[in-house]
Amino acid sequence: MNEVSLLQSLGQVSASETGGVFRDFIRGHVRVMISVVMAAEVTQLCGPNQRI
């Protein structure tokens, strides 16, 4: 979900559901960020992938 679809989703839900939609958006982005950081750390520690 990107920022545009987040805004569209928030516009289509009731006020009581807004928190859940926003939490799902943040949770997904945090997961992506953690994966990117972990991959960068592995590359830094172990070097680039040496696939043939």
Rank of each mutant, 00 (worst) to 15 (best):
H29I: 00
Q12F: 00
N2L: 02
V4M: 15
R27L: 07
I52L: 09
R23F: 00
V13I: 11
D24T: 08
V32N: 08
S35E: 08
G19F: 09
I26H: 01
A15M: 11
G20T: 03
M1I: 05
T43L: 06
L10P: 14
V4N: 15
G11W: 02
M33D: 02
S5M: 12
T18Q: 15
V37F: 02
M33E: 01
I26F: 07
A15R: 12
A40W: 13
Q8T: 15
M38K: 10
M1S: 06
G11A: 15
A15F: 13
I52K: 12
N2I: 01
E17S: 15
N2A: 02
Q50E: 04
T18N: 06
H29P: 03
Q50D: 09
L7I: 14
M38Q: 12
L45R: 14
N2P: 04
I26P: 01
V32F: 03
I52T: 06
S9K: 09
S16K: 09
S16L: 05
D24P: 00
S9I: 01
E3C: 02
C46T: 03
V30W: 06
Q8H: 11
G19E: 13
S16A: 07
S16R: 11
A39H: 11
V13K: 01
S14F: 07
G19H: 03
T18D: 05
E17K: 02
C46E: 13
E17R: 10
V4D: 13
V37Q: 08
T43H: 09
A15K: 12
A39T: 08
G11E: 11
V36D: 05
H29A: 07
E41D: 12
S5R: 11
L10I: 11
G19N: 08
V32E: 05
R27W: 00
R31P: 00
T43R: 15
Q50F: 02
L7K: 14
V36S: 14
V37N: 03
P48W: 00
I26L: 14
P48D: 03
G28Y: 00
F25L: 05
L6N: 08
Q44H: 08
L45C: 01
C46Q: 15
Q44S: 05
N49R: 02
V36T: 14
E3A: 11
G20N: 12
R51H: 10
S35Q: 11
V30R: 12
V37L: 13
T18I: 03
N49P: 02
